[in-house]
Each structure stands twice: as structure tokens, then as C-alpha cells.
Amino acid sequence: MSVNSATGTRLRLLVGKVGLDGHDRGAKIIARALRDAGFEVIYTGLHQTPEMVVATALQEDVDAVSLSILSGAHNTLFPRVIELLKKAGVAVPVFGGGIIPEEDIPRLRKAGVKAVFTPGTSTQDVINWVKSHIRPRNEGSASRAAKLRRPPSAARRGTPGRRKATRR
């Protein structure tokens, strides 16, 4: 399911930790769960600005951007990432989660955030949502094919094939 059956390409997802807080527990769990579910995951690491996230998203040619925000700055950071992606002329869906009060969610959805996951969400719920809502972009494009052939160079990119035993 995580592999598009028509083209055989695997979805590439960016997991971004924007803002100044260091709460990366959730982002790391989600990144790992998405990888284990068969997606290709690019994790940005901590303390990213919206500009840095968007630059990575473009460079890595991802199919979706997910953001983890626990600093209370979600009303600033989500719209900013969406705006910068728009400016760059790419239609990459943005979703995310963190400590986000219920009443802020409609505003974020209106700003273009495709889904907002709040504390207590299981990783399976996120995986299911991705499977049913995210589709590969630029299918068959030459640049994408070239990128997919490129071997994973950075440690931050995890693929199921490279997975070591993780449970002890």
C-alpha cells in the first residue's frame, strides 16, 4: 500500500521539526513508524526554520511534508511553510501534529494544513491517513527517477531494507 502499485515508486515523506523547542520524541517515533510502514522518510532534525524545511522538501522532491510542533508557534509556522511552498510553485501537501489546542485546528485547516494530529494519536492512525490521502507527485518524471536511483547517502534517510533489528 505504501508503494504506488502503478509506478512502483515509494512515497517520500519529510518529517520536519520546526521551531525552537527540542521536543523530538514524537517526531522521531513518527519518522520511524512511517519508515517501518514502508515509506521513505527524510527527517530534518531539530530547530528548523520554515525556509530550511521547504528547501529540504524541494531538494528531496518529497510527496508530503509533515511537521511536529510543540512550542505553541503552530499558528505562525504551519502557514509560513505552506506559503513558502506555494511561492516555490510546488503543490506538496502539508500535515502535522503536536500540542495544538482544538480551537486552533479549524484555522490551520483553513490555512491549508491537510490533517492535524493531536496527542494520543496512534502511529497506525497516521500511517492509515497517509496511505489514503497522499499520492506520489511528478510520477515518472526524469528527475524523480534519477533521484530514486541515487543510493541513500545520509544516515537520516531510512529505508526498510536497511533496517537493523530494533526491538530488544
Partner: peptide, 8 residues
Amino acid sequence: YREEKTYF
């Protein structure tokens, strides 16, 4: 300081 961007 720069942390390695790893999640596993």
C-alpha cells in the same frame, strides 16, 4: 553544536 539528524 550540530546534531546528527538521525531518528533510529
